[in-house]
Design a binder for these strands. Structure first.
Lengths: 143, 143
DNA sequence: GCATATAGTTGCATGATACAATCAACTACT
DNA sequence: AGTAGTTGATTGTATCATGCAACTATATGC
């Protein structure tokens, strides 16, 4: 049996974290650190081309949401749409050079921030944290 | 110097986590696990009465946002509004019995969920995770 | 070939948020 | 005391991300 207090603690900390992490770019000027774009492009880069359905599943979003987001990303010219040769309904998106550049830019800003936030952590702590976060995320997937 | 890849990994995992944690109670029936209400009530319980300005600062939200949220919470009867005796403009909210009960209910549902998600984690892992999350949150505060 | 399923898009409603304008009360300064 | 500026809070308005539902077009199964 798990320690209930510890769970509560984790639960509260996560809730706070979510609130604060949502607080992306506080009304900041241009270069809005667009989390959607970032995550989607990253997914395409890391795991190759994918259609809206697969992306929606990966991020636990409605396909309509992803469809709109990808439409924006496509419009900005960060991806190329590839029609599925065997299925006339389906298509997938492939990140292109512009997308990779944008990803690099956004990523720099974001990593910059975490670099500040986590500057006092030891490599071991970073490892552990990354591992535990990853595990929790994988669990969410199976939920 | 921090390992850039590790930072990126953490950053991405956090982004995913935020995305998924936002996905509270997927269209679930009533008892909408309202994160705003939960966090605000919790804050009032843990740190005593506070006005909208202080709450907004704590959660890094605009005062207008918190004003509206607290209006809802007040309407539901979870808090009592206390006029500031020395400042006619200001007032603070104090959680009442109904608020504490609601908090208990919401908390139970949320802990329930994490109990499932984290059921295979060792106590040590839970400890570590709670500690690292807390540390990150404290860093956010100072940002 | 018709019925059903599936990939994707679009219309609509909602909720959370920020910013700006406003109000009322407080503070400072002369 | 009076005026100007500040501050706590509320409210109007716009935006954005999202989900659900309706729809289109294509596939698939019988």
């Amino acid at each position: 049996m798990l320690d209930r207090n510890k769970l509560t603690e984790i639960e509260v900390e996560l809730a706070k974290l979510v609130r604060r992490a949502n607080f992306v770019s506080p009304g900041k000027d241009q270069r809005i650190v667009d989390r959607s774009t970032y995550l989607l492009l990253l997914q395409l880069k890391e795991h190759g081309p994918a259609g809206v359905k697969a992306l929606a599943q990966e991020f636990r979003l409605d396909v309509s949401t992803v469809s709109r987001q990808m439409a924006v990303i496509e419009k900005k010219g960060y991806v190329r749409r590839i029609a599925d040769p065997t299925d006339g309904r389906a298509s997938s998106f492939q990140i292109n050079e512009a997308g990779l550049q944008e990803l690099e830019l956004i990523g720099q800003a974001r990593v910059e921030r975490y670099s500040r936030l986590l500057k006092d952590w030891t490599p071991e702590e970073l490892d552990t944290f990354a591992e535990l976060l990853g595990r929790l995320n994988r669990t969410y997937v199976d939920e």
